[in-house]
C-alpha cells in the first residue's frame, strides 16, 4: 500500500519475519497434506520428509471418501452454513439499521445488550440452547444446527458500525424518493455496506463450517452431521490410528474454504477499498 521504498536490508528483514510467521502457521497444514499422501508405515517413521517415499494418496483419499459418507457431511456443512448466513444477514441488517439510523426509546440499552451478547462465548449458552431446542423438539434436525446462530451480535455490531458511517442525507434522500424503511435497508444500506457483508460472510462461513462443539451436542444422526463432526465419527470408527485417511478427510474438508477464500480474495480487497464514495 505505501509508496515508500525500503532499503534492501530492511526489506530482507521484513520479508524474513513475514516468511517465518507464515511458515509457522502453514506447517500444520503442510504436515496434514503430507501425511494424507503417505502409507501407514511411513507415517510413524522417525524421520520426516514432506514428500512421501511411497505415494499412498489414492488409497488414503479413496478410503476417506468411501469408508464414511464424507460428501454427505460436506453437503450438510454447506447447507447449514448457507442457511445460517442467509438468516443472519436477514436478521442483522434490519436490526443494525434500526440501531444505527432510527431513533426510538431504549435504543442505547438494546445496543448495550448486543455488546453484552458479543462478549459472551457461545459455549456459555449451550446448555440453555440445548434445553430450548429440546422444548422446541428440533434436536437432531438441521434446524437445531441453524437456530442458535440466527441472531449474531457480531453481525449486528459490524453492520451497525458500517451503517453509521453512511450519511443520514442518503437515508433522507431515499425516504423522499419513496423507499420504505425495509427498502432502504435492502436497496441502499446493504449494497453500500457490501465490504462489511462480505467480511461478515467469510467470518460466519469459516466459523460454522469448522464448528464442532454445537453439532456434537445438537445432532446424533450421521445423516445430519457437518464435516468436522463427520471426521470425528470417522476417527472413532477407525480406532484412532489410521492417520492417512483421517488427514485425507481433513484436507478435503479444509479445501473448499481455502479455494473459496483464494477466489474471493481479490474481490474482497477491492470491496474494502474501491467502494468508498466522496
Amino acid at each position: 500500500m505505501s509508496a515508500i521504498r525500503l532499503s534492501p536490508a530492511a526489506a530482507i528483514l521484513r520479508h524474513g519475519v513475514l516468511v517465518l510467521t507464515s511458515a509457522f502457521i502453514l506447517v500444520p497444514f503442510v504436515w496434514m497434506v503430507s501425511l494424507s499422501l503417505k502409507s501407514p508405515g511411513e507415517i510413524f517413521r522417525a524421520t520426516f520428509s514432506v514428500l512421501p517415499a511411497q505415494f499412498y494418496g489414492v488409497d488414503n483419499y479413496a478410503k476417506a471418501i468411501t469408508s464414511v459418507p464424507l460428501p454427505r457431511y460436506m453437503g450438510n456443512g454447506l447447507l447449514v452454513c448457507a442457511l445460517i448466513l442467509a438468516a443472519q444477514i436477514l436478521v442483522c441488517a434490519p436490526a443494525a439499521y434500526a440501531l444505527a439510523k432510527l431513533k426510538f426509546w431504549g435504543r442505547d440499552f438494546i445496543f448495550a445488550m448486543v455488546l453484552v451478547g458479543l462478549l459472551l462465548p457461545h459455549q456459555v449458552l449451550s446448555l440453555p440452547l440445548f434445553i430450548l431446542c429440546y422444548k422446541l423438539d428440533i434436536l437432531n434436525t438441521y434446524l437445531a444446527l441453524v437456530i442458535p446462530y440466527v441472531v449474531s451480535p457480531f453481525g449486528i455490531f459490524l453492520f451497525r458500525q458500517f451503517f453509521k458511517k453512511i450519511p443520514n442525507d442518503i437515508v433522507h434522500a431515499a425516504r423522499l424518493d419513496g423507499l420504505c424503511e425495509l427498502a432502504i435497508v435492502w436497496k441502499i444500506m446493504v449494497p453500500m455496506a457490501l465490504p462489511a457483508v462480505i467480511a461478515f460472510s467469510i467470518f460466519s462461513v469459516v466459523a460454522h463450517w469448522n464448528d464442532l462443539f454445537w453439532p456434537l451436542i445438537a445432532v446424533r444422526d450421521g445423516n445430519l452431521m457437518p464435516a468436522p463432526l463427520g471426521i470425528m465419527a470417522f476417527k472413532n470408527e477407525e480406532a484412532g490410528n489410521d492417520y492417512g485417511p483421517l488427514m485425507a478427510a481433513s484436507t478435503l474438508v479444509v479445501a473448499p474454504l481455502l479455494i473459496a477464500f483464494l477466489a474471493a480474495q481479490k474481490w474482497f480487497v477491492e470491496g474494502m477499498t474501491g467502494g468508498s464514495v466522496k
Binding site: 450519511p167 442525507d169 442518503i170 433522507h172 434522500a173 431515499a174 423522499l176 441502499i188 449494497p191 453500500m192 457490501l194 467502494g275 464514495v277 466522496k278
Partner: peptide
C-alpha cells in the same frame, strides 16, 4: 423533492 448539500446520491 430535496437536493442535499452532500448530494446524497446512491453510490452503488
Amino acid at each position: 423533492a430535496m437536493v442535499f448539500q452532500s448530494y446524497a446520491l446512491y453510490p452503488h
